[in-house]
Computed example of a mutant assay.
Amino acid sequence: MTMKVAVITDSGSDIYTQNVHLEGLFRVPFQVIDGDKVYLDGETITIDQTYRLIYDGRNLTTSLPPIGMVDELFENLKAQGYDMIFAVVIASALSSTLSALAASAQRQDLLFDFVDCHAIMINELHLAISARKLFDKGFSVEEVKRRCNKSIKDSMTFVIPKDLKQLQKSGRITPMAAALGGFLNLKPLLKISVETGGKVDAFEKVRTMGKAFEIMVQYFKDQNVDKDCLITVAHVWDAQTGRQLMDIMKENFPQTEIIFTDLVSVIGCHTGLGAVGAQYIRRVELD
């Protein structure tokens, strides 16, 4: 008898903003924390409202989806006849969401499997949607993982904070490093990929956004990004700079679908306003 598999992703995939609804694809929100107030990312607070709080000087933090909400969802899925949870969530190096989902599935006596996307945002969402479509076509868990992992290995996410202040506030870098970076007017070009184990790591340090854009474009070209890939350009309350990067990507990759969106809150809360980013992934083979 064929297993009934539920695919789970989180708000770090931008699924709320993209308004994706597929039968058998479920989502859980990260928590956005403002002092003693706790919001559910995408449900009780939008990305735009989150960045408004940052603009107003609030020191926001983020946390994994509420355990009680996950338990309730999995209990309902079991009641609906699902046998397995297949998780496609934010990189495990960035959050303990994956382990929390696994523990919840165990409590509900549900089978559990996953792919570690080593990514965020639309790359993560593309993998979740593709997994759902592959299961609907009758592919095995092993084959779904193989195809997703093949695409994960051919992907990259770049993020460029406007400055280092918010990274210092969130504890991602030391005060001395932030001060030195500001003094030298350096912008860190950060990367998230299989190579970094899904962690945020420095790719290069540059003095201008223009130079960072050149480096990203060249990297994408070196990886032979083409019509079989998907590119995302994102920003944190800086649509003008985001559009500049979008135009550059369109000019250099005219055959590739490019999505323009807000950078998800779980990253933007740490990079701060003015950050921009770009990512690509080679599409999952669905046939």
Rank of each mutant, 00 (worst) to 15 (best):
D201C: 11
L77Y: 10
G198V: 05
L125P: 04
M69W: 07
S13Q: 01
K169A: 07
D247G: 00
I47Q: 11
K133L: 15
V7R: 01
C229K: 07
T17A: 15
F260T: 02
Y39P: 02
F86A: 01
A100K: 12
I173S: 09
M209V: 13
L111V: 01
S155D: 03
L245R: 03
D48K: 15
T208G: 01
T2W: 09
L125T: 02
A177H: 04
F139W: 08
E143F: 07
L184V: 11
G24T: 07
T62Q: 07
G138K: 08
H126A: 09
K78A: 13
F220T: 06
I215D: 00
K165H: 12
A103P: 00
P66Q: 08
V225P: 05
D56G: 05
E214F: 08
V194P: 05
R147S: 06
D287Y: 12
S170L: 08
P29Y: 03
L53Y: 10
L22C: 06
L186Q: 02
V225R: 07
I152Q: 07
G277C: 08
Q223W: 08
A79N: 15
G277T: 08
E214W: 02
C148W: 03
V236I: 13
Q244D: 11
S96C: 12
F260C: 03
E124N: 11
Y39H: 11
G35L: 09
L98E: 06
Y51G: 00
Q106D: 15
A131S: 13
M246E: 11
V264G: 12
F135D: 03
Q279L: 13
N19F: 01
M156Q: 14
C117K: 00
T97E: 09
K37V: 11
Q106P: 00
K37R: 14
L98D: 04
F86P: 01
K162L: 13
H118F: 14
T241Y: 08
Y55R: 15
T256F: 02
I192Y: 02
D222Q: 13
V38I: 15
E251V: 03
P175E: 09
D136Q: 15
I8T: 06
G171H: 10
I192C: 06
S104D: 09
A79V: 11
L125F: 04
G242M: 02
L101P: 00
Q31M: 15
A119D: 06
M176F: 14
D222E: 15
H235K: 03
T271I: 02
I231K: 05
F203R: 01
E143K: 13
G272D: 05
T97A: 10
I215S: 00
L263E: 02
T196Y: 02
K150C: 09
K133V: 13
T196V: 04
G68E: 12
L25Y: 06
G35D: 11
S96W: 05
T232M: 10
M249T: 03
M69K: 13
E214I: 08
V284K: 04
G42D: 00
D34Q: 12
C229E: 07
I267A: 11
E195Y: 09
Q106E: 15
Q168S: 12
M3E: 15
Q240W: 02
I267S: 01
G42I: 02
D228H: 13
T17D: 14
P29S: 08
